[in-house]
Write a protein that binds this DNA or RNA. Sequence first.
DNA 1: CGTGAAACATTAGCGGC
DNA 2: GCCGCTAATGTTTCACG
Lengths: 176, 176
Amino acid sequence: MAAIELDAIDRRILAILQQQGRLSNQEIAERVNLSPSPCLRRIRRLEESGVIRGYVALLDAKRIGLDLLAFVNVRLEKRGGPTGDSTGSARGDVARTHAGATHAELFRAAVQTWPEVVACHAMAGEMDYLLRVQVADMAHFSHFVQDVLLHHPSVIDVKSSFSLETFKETTALPVR
Amino acid sequence: MAAIELDAIDRRILAILQQQGRLSNQEIAERVNLSPSPCLRRIRRLEESGVIRGYVALLDAKRIGLDLLAFVNVRLEKRGGPTGDSTGSARGDVARTHAGATHAELFRAAVQTWPEVVACHAMAGEMDYLLRVQVADMAHFSHFVQDVLLHHPSVIDVKSSFSLETFKETTALPVR
DNA sequence: CGTGAAACATTAGCGGC
DNA sequence: GCCGCTAATGTTTCACG
């Protein structure tokens, strides 16, 4: 996680690849005024250092039938595992079952397995987790909240907000 | 925006490209048990139909010094443009200045120019917009809120929440 | 950093199922 | 319609100056 030194050319390469991740090395080299080999060496260095995490295709959610985007705030049980005894823990106990998992650990593991949850952040403030949920329609969303989320033993309650329209959505981070 | 018919092979191709957007067509063809040409034809069809919006490199925010992720709820003025007379509008007026821009339009245009705002959604419910803001540290965030966001004539007030940790974050949508 | 050559990938045309 | 072959063209990659 050491901060990697980036010069002006590296930043231009990153800006380009954040917009068009499948450009050929030749094309990139041309745009940054380098010949293909040093350009490729820079790209490999950015990949190996972890600055570039990977390359992905972005899909159009509406065109694959995912018309509903919701943000769901989730509050979890704070003490005791779902099966274990939750009362009588000593002060400062991290809540664990005898299986050794806290509510937070169980919830985070479950989140990984739910494909409609595309992002999950632990939040400062009153709500524990913020989920970004992408589903086909309100019927699917309702099913997800009632039968999946609220069914999970660690979840106390949820509050949902719905996106009416997305005006900006980019994976490109500002590279200064 | 017509829904495109996707068969099982199309869905496998999409699943692969959502994970590894720079795989060669040959490699993808092998994984879906097709020869390169029909595989490429399918990919081109998915690109041209707009199911695949594009290809991007994903960067590691921490490695480029962006350590703070915030979600900002923004409430806007509802009536009147920022310079025009806002009182005495007939009922049902969409609030416009004589320049012809509503508060919402001005705000949405401004959002496009702010690189730290990586997403902006119009939300149902009490808050008008949800922004995802990616910055280096609290000093930058504070500057952004005080001098940029609150300085904008259409913004009434903002509420910020901070991500402590991100447990899941994927651009891959479930392709059923 | 750049050059060049070998290895590899893409893509259009055509025949077959 | 959709698949797969072939062959020409373009791209990546690496040893070396």
